[in-house]
């Protein structure tokens, strides 16, 4: 409760003194939901460069990655973002899972250790976001507790959220299921990899910014 009050006070204080237009936009979700792919897509669209590396192996992003001064423009309005790509949040880490991707035991153990530290960092950063995009892999069951926990914590902190159902280019994608799981949120379907439906995404992003 104290944390929530402190965060509320910090947000009011920051709101008064922060540089107009600078918005800390966080990317949250389970591992391999496509957080870095979307952050890269935005950076490519507006800066012409990537933010981080992507991989099929889970927990590729194990540290917070930041790209500052990303300026997006729409209908003559410019907004400056600080993009904060966070490591995927999970409730379990088994180093043997990484060995299935060809890593040696020691490297897998090291990756697992880094992944746990990454998850802790992601959680700590929750308090510092102005707005958050929660990425959900639309090809798998959206009712994961990680998604529910992230959304619950953002709601408790009064941080505006846009739910993005990623991987709509894949056959197994079911955006209706994502919308059904989170009826109280705006959900936009995209393919971060192919850049599908990014126009609608940017439109929703600008709507999200108005809530900050």
């Amino acid at each position: 409760m104290i944390k929530i009050i402190r965060n509320f006070a910090r947000r009011i204080f920051a709101g008064v003194f922060k540089k107009k237009g600078e918005i800390k936009l966080g990317f949250y979700g389970s591992p391999n939901a496509g957080k870095t792919s979307l952050a890269n897509r935005i950076c490519q669209d507006w800066l012409g460069e990537d933010l981080g590396s992507v991989s099929r192996m889970p927990h590729e992003t194990r540290e917070i990655q930041i790209k500052e001064k990303v300026i997006l423009e729409r209908d003559g309005k410019k907004i400056e973002f600080k993009l904060i790509d966070t490591p995927g949040v999970a409730t379990r880490i088994d180093f043997e899972d990484f060995m299935k991707f060809g890593l040696k035991r020691k490297a897998a153990q090291e990756r697992a250790k880094e992944a746990t530290q990454g998850i802790i960092a992601s959680i700590k950063w929750l308090d510092d976001m102005d707005a958050v995009i929660v990425l959900i892999d639309s090809t798998i069951n959206p009712y994961s507790q990680v998604n529910i926990t992230i959304l619950g914590n953002l709601a408790a902190r009064n941080i505006p959220v846009l739910v993005v159902a990623n991987k709509i280019d894949l056959k197994k994608s079911d955006i209706k299921k994502v919308r059904g799981a989170f009826p109280e949120y705006d959900v936009v379907g995209i393919s971060a990899k192919n850049g599908d439906n990014m126009e609608e995404f940017y439109e929703e992003l600008f709507k999200l910014v108005k809530k900050v």
């Binding site: 929530i4 409730t91 507790q145 914590n153 408790a156």
Partner: peptide, 26 residues
């Protein structure tokens, strides 16, 4: 929600420090 996130944080801290512990399912 805050307790859930702390539970995840706590279990992440224990992985690697308690042999055989891989986290939780919730």
């Amino acid at each position: 929600p805050d307790e859930e996130v702390r539970l995840i944080e706590n279990s992440m801290t224990l992985i690697g420090n308690i042999q055989g512990f891989q986290g939780i399912e919730i």
